[in-house]
């Protein structure tokens, strides 16, 4: 347990220091990575710990993003309450999706989440008058501040992203220490057994999906607020595949795996897109190679080989 606390504290301390030491370009990248890693951590709650593979998490990311974005843009709501609206939108959407999609299992669950997310994406396009569709809209610089802190300032933005990331990391790490988290793992390992040991597995899966979706929404709202842009691309299928990829790469069912996966993938794509426009090829290759050779992902392999205590 202490090793695990040391690991998490160490990671956060390193990230605090990185904010001051990194050059501007990488500081900006890392801020983005921290927000996207928050999205991946949310995804990991459902996929990594509960064993449910969703192909539609972009709708929750999008609910947070548009909840905040539309409230600020059209409702004139200040940033902080708008963030709350984003969270509420994501929580409500994930509760509705959970009620319906959790009636299915396995492949059907994947397809149902994919279909719901596709409807959400099309809905964003349909209401183009407000959402401006694929083109998206930019949040006014002047409105992007909380308690007098200017979130467009790169350094403040970095630490705001780190705050969101830390909160999500603490929530998921703590969750996995208590009975609730153990029960999620039990469901992942053997759902029927868990049910027949007296656990309400359906209620646990519901809670896991809502927590997962709300964390994804928090990431979406943060992304809009910190980088000032809201667009339909973030609700497309691609953004449902990304967290799956990050979590698989970093290690599903590990607390820091999502961050490691997002970090690697971000820089891999960043580097590749420098010399080809077909940089998404990397996404495909990594997905295939992971399924073939390293199902446990980076941190999963580390746990298997060197550190079985890894949370």
């Amino acid at each position: 347990m202490t090793r695990s606390i040391a690991l998490h504290l160490g990671l956060i301390a390193a990230l605090v220091a990185a904010g001051l030491m990194l050059p501007a370009y990488h500081q900006g990248n890392l801020a983005r990575i921290l927000v996207l890693a928050t999205y991946a951590m949310g995804y990991n709650v459902l996929f990594g710990y509960t064993g449910l593979l969703s192909l539609g998490h972009a709708m929750f990311f999008g609910a947070g993003m548009y909840g905040l974005g539309l409230a600020m843009q059209h409702g004139g709501v200040p940033a902080l309450p708008a963030f709350g609206i984003g969270l509420a939108a994501a929580a409500a959407l994930s509760a509705i999706v959970a009620m319906l999609a959790l009636r299915t299992i396995g492949v059907a669950f994947m397809i149902v989440t994919l279909m719901f997310a596709q409807s959400a994406y099309l809905t964003v396009l349909y209401f183009g008058e407000w959402t401006r569709g694929d083109e998206g809209f930019v949040l006014q610089q002047a409105t992007r501040q909380i308690a007098g802190l200017d979130l467009t300032n790169p350094l403040i933005r970095y630490y705001a992203a780190l705050t969101v990331f830390t909160a999500a990391l603490v929530i998921t790490a703590r969750m996995m220490q208590v009975r609730f988290g153990h029960t999620l793992i039990a469901i992942r390992e053997n759902e029927e057994r868990t049910r027949m040991l007296g656990y309400n597995t359906q209620a646990h899966k519901f809670a896991a999906l809502v927590i997962s979706g709300t964390l994804a929404g928090a990431a979406g709202a943060s992304y809009a607020l910190l980088f000032g842009y809201v667009g339909a691309t973030f609700t497309s299928v691609q953004y449902s595949i990304f967290p799956l990829l990050w979590v698989l790469l970093g290690g599903a069912g590990t607390t820091i795996g999502p961050f490691i996966g997002t970090l690697f993938m971000f820089y891999l794509i960043d580097t590749t897109s420098g010399f080809t426009n077909a940089y998404l090829m990397i996404v495909g290759l990594v997905l295939v190679l992971l399924t073939l050779f390293a199902r446990a992902g980076i941190m999963g392999e580390v746990r298997k080989r060197f550190a079985p205590w890894l949370p």
């Binding site: 593979l53 192909l55 396995g106 492949v107 994947m110 595949i241 799956l244 698989l248 080809t276 426009n277 077909a278 940089y279 998404l280 090829m281 996404v283 495909g284 290759l285 990594v286 997905l287 295939v288 190679l289 992971l290 399924t291 073939l292 199902r295």
Partner: peptide
């Protein structure tokens, strides 16, 4: 991957990107 349903979905998503991007290239 022994036609494991979930692994197959992930792998074919990978194939999707590979083929699509190869066509782009």
């Amino acid at each position: 991957v022994d036609y494991d349903p979930e692994a197959t979905i992930v792998a074919t998503i990978g194939l999707l990107y590979i083929m699509q991007q190869a066509a782009l290239m």
